[in-house]
Measured scan of single mutants.
Amino acid sequence: CHSECLGNCSQPDDPTKCVACRNFYLDGRCVETCPPPYYHFQDWRCVNFSFCQDLHHKCKNSRRQGCHQYVIHNNKCIPECPSGYTMNSSNLLCTPCLGPCPKVCHLLEGEKTIDSVTSAQELRGCTVINGSLIINIRGGNNLAAELEANLGLIEEISGYLKIRRSYALVSLSFFRKLRLIRGETLEIGNYSFYALDNQNLRQLWDWSKHNLTITQGKLFFHYNPKLCLSEIHKMEEVSGTKGRQERNDIALKTNGDQASCENELLKFSYIRTSFDKILLRWEPYWPPDFRDLLGFMLFYKEAPYQNVTEFDGQDACGSNSWTVVDIDPPLRSNDPKSQNHPGWLMRGLKPWTQYAIFVKTLVTFSDERRTYGAKSDIIYVQTDATNPSVPLDPISVSNSSSQIILKWKPPSDPNGNITHYLVFWERQAEDSELFELDYCLKGLKLPSRTWSPPFESEDSQKHNQSEYEDSAGECCSCPKTDSQILKELEESSFRKTFEDYLHNVVFVPRKT
């Protein structure tokens, strides 16, 4: 048989008469490798580009789960590009990614509803959504962080984005990388972005840091009482949809009607710091009717980097990364020049730590249904340095008659930039024990000054392991946590139920 035959053949030295091919099969003959313009397919066939392209389009058009959109890589027609490569849609070739590779997620039936953290986790790592997304989240724990972890990498949506009755959302900033909504599939009414009845939605994105392009379709905003109209108009300008909307697409009466839409800028007039305090004062603000001013709200939190936005980490279910302080308005003076500047002394802060701070007014709604208010920009203030805590785990070892090696770990709280350490030492008198000992005694162990690591005695271990207080009263049991108490109650309830079950099964009433 021919060298490319495997198993047997019907005619000697003829690659077209093989029972099976050793390498690849091409047009009725066995070959060692697939010549151009053919590609290896499933490690035994040679196919042309049209064959591989037909497989790709067949799966793409069917949208069946589990099928493969075949691509070409290293002269092979394979189910998908290997790690580190992405497909070129024009020629199906796998090309190296520039940075992290995109991950295209194809949605069944063309859309997916995100109504819980669990459903959001199914899209973790996706960068391109081939379909439409509907966000409908009523509640949950730590929602802002969970949504950002699972949806934060999405850069492109081919269909539309719909935010509907998501009472738990305060902001859409968890879509931190969303840059493009194509609108290839539109919501009824030709809408590519749809926001309806979101009672706590206050911000779409921080438009000073976020760009969003909507290729096709219109915007729809109705019944978002805490979303200011200025935020919607800003989205029109940034996304390129200005002029597409009709009169009733953006409701003037049901958007922002319960919001404090600040239209003035508060400026800080005085800032002073110490290692654990920050004193702030800002310019006074009074609405047209000074009785509408209820006070100020001061927001602050630790910020290692200057990239904080107002609604980071917030949701309507209680999660809030900001510390909020309510401040009463100052006494009002008739003389504008003698107006008191409101302020606040922030206490209990960490030394040498940068804080993000902003302040906003708290006002009631005027009778004319106009909203007044003022808010400052987010500023960054760093507390002063102070003395560091003591170095940890000092170790001293003498390696000769004239040297001592000293080692330690950095302090747990540096409280500033540590530039150097101060080492103090003092000579001590020799131990009298060394002169009084009889060095001729056998088995004498000389006193040693070398360091030995501390260890816990058996008594201390027994005390720590004991669940009861000892007789001397030195140790006591740790208080039980809520989960331990709940577990004990469940076990007790189970024992009672099981005992009742045994009584009912074992003891049967005697027939009379």
Results as ranks from 00 to 15, higher is better:
residue 103 K to M: 02
residue 107 L to I: 08
residue 108 L to H: 11
residue 114 I to A: 00
residue 117 V to F: 12
residue 118 T to W: 03
residue 121 Q to R: 13
residue 123 L to K: 01
residue 125 G to K: 07
residue 125 G to R: 02
residue 125 G to M: 06
residue 127 T to P: 03
residue 130 N to C: 00
residue 132 S to Y: 03
residue 137 I to N: 07
residue 140 G to R: 14
residue 140 G to E: 12
residue 141 N to S: 11
residue 143 L to N: 05
residue 145 A to W: 05
residue 146 E to V: 03
residue 147 L to I: 13
residue 153 L to A: 12
residue 155 E to M: 05
residue 157 I to V: 12
residue 158 S to A: 12
residue 162 K to C: 09
residue 173 S to G: 08
residue 174 F to H: 06
residue 180 L to S: 11
residue 183 G to T: 02
residue 187 E to G: 13
residue 190 N to M: 14
residue 190 N to R: 13
residue 194 Y to V: 12
residue 198 N to E: 02
residue 200 N to M: 13
residue 204 L to V: 07
residue 207 W to R: 14
residue 212 L to T: 10
residue 212 L to H: 01
residue 213 T to N: 11
residue 214 I to N: 03
residue 217 G to E: 07
residue 222 H to N: 07
residue 226 K to F: 02
residue 226 K to S: 03
residue 227 L to V: 06
residue 227 L to F: 04
residue 229 L to A: 13
residue 229 L to Y: 13
residue 231 E to F: 14
residue 233 H to K: 04
residue 233 H to V: 07
residue 236 E to K: 10
residue 238 V to C: 05
residue 239 S to P: 03
residue 243 G to T: 10
residue 246 E to R: 15
residue 246 E to C: 06
residue 253 K to M: 15
residue 253 K to R: 13
residue 254 T to D: 05
residue 255 N to L: 07
residue 257 D to R: 09
residue 260 S to H: 05
residue 260 S to Q: 05
residue 261 C to M: 02
residue 262 E to L: 00
residue 263 N to L: 05
residue 266 L to T: 02
residue 269 S to K: 12
residue 271 I to S: 09
residue 273 T to H: 14
residue 274 S to H: 11
residue 279 L to I: 10
residue 280 L to N: 00
residue 283 E to F: 14
residue 284 P to I: 01
residue 285 Y to T: 02
residue 286 W to K: 04
residue 287 P to H: 01
residue 288 P to G: 02
residue 291 R to A: 02
residue 298 L to D: 00
residue 298 L to K: 02
residue 300 Y to W: 07
residue 302 E to I: 14
residue 303 A to D: 07
residue 307 N to R: 10
residue 312 D to L: 09
residue 316 A to P: 08
residue 325 V to W: 15
residue 325 V to P: 00
residue 336 P to Q: 13
residue 337 K to A: 11
residue 341 H to A: 11
residue 342 P to A: 07
residue 343 G to R: 10
residue 345 L to H: 06
residue 345 L to I: 12
residue 350 K to L: 07
residue 353 T to I: 15
residue 354 Q to A: 06
residue 360 K to M: 01
residue 361 T to F: 02
residue 361 T to N: 02
residue 363 V to E: 00
residue 365 F to G: 00
residue 371 T to H: 09
residue 373 G to Y: 01
residue 376 S to F: 00
residue 380 Y to Q: 07
residue 381 V to I: 11
residue 382 Q to P: 09
residue 383 T to K: 03
residue 384 D to G: 00
residue 385 A to W: 04
residue 387 N to D: 05
residue 388 P to W: 01
residue 390 V to S: 10
residue 393 D to N: 14
residue 395 I to L: 10
residue 398 S to I: 06
residue 399 N to H: 13
residue 404 I to Y: 01
residue 404 I to C: 04
